[in-house]
């Protein structure tokens, strides 16, 4: 099932302090964290973003801290997926674990802020619906796909736990 949304285009090395400044680590509620998403980049970002929007980034997205609050904040503000040329390792794991789809793909050059994006998690197909241009993401590894399909790691573990 394809996800569609508006693109937010970012450069290389968007780090976790930019995505969620450390002073908000005291928070753990998704909605509360969402109020500070990308505050280090633009304090007004949260007023411009709409639920369902998609981030299209460059190399090494999410580098820095292991703070899961970073992808949670993006999810909290309504970001539906993150596409980036490459991800920092921990951010990638965290995003998929909390059910925020993350796709590795060189697609940034095809998009401007606000372009309508369509992406298909199963096939890895990413499309700019304004220009018709398309890019192909690396497939998400199968066991990671299982986690997404379950709706995150906690759901996956929940069903595997012995009952009672």
């Amino acid at each position: 099932m394809p996800i569609t949304g508006r693109a937010w285009v970012f450069g290389d090395k968007v780090d976790t302090d930019v995505i969620l400044p450390g002073k908000y680590l005291v928070l753990s509620d998704e909605g509360e964290l969402g109020k500070h998403a990308l505050e280090g980049f633009d304090p007004g970002f949260v007023t411009k973003v709409q639920p369902g929007d998609i981030i299209v980034g460059g190399r090494y997205f999410g580098c820095g801290s292991s703070r899961e609050q970073a992808p949670v904040a993006l999810k909290g503000v309504g970001i539906a997926a993150v596409v980036a040329e490459t991800f920092a390792r921990i951010f990638y794991r965290n995003a998929l674990n909390i059910g925020l789809p993350a796709l590795e793909c060189r697609a940034r050059h095809l998009f401007q802020d606000g372009d309508p994006v369509s992406l298909n998690l199963e096939t890895g197909e990413i499309r700019n619906l304004r220009t018709g241009q398309m890019a192909q993401a690396k497939p998400i590894p199968p066991f990671m796909m299982d986690i997404i399909a379950a709706g995150g790691l906690m759901n996956k573990i929940r069903v595997s736990l012995p009952k009672g």
Partner: peptide, 14 residues
């Protein structure tokens, strides 16, 4: 190595 919070919850469980 560093891991995320949810992943740690998985470790705590399993």
């Amino acid at each position: 190595t560093g891991i995320g919070s949810t992943e740690m919850a998985g470790v705590f469980a399993t």
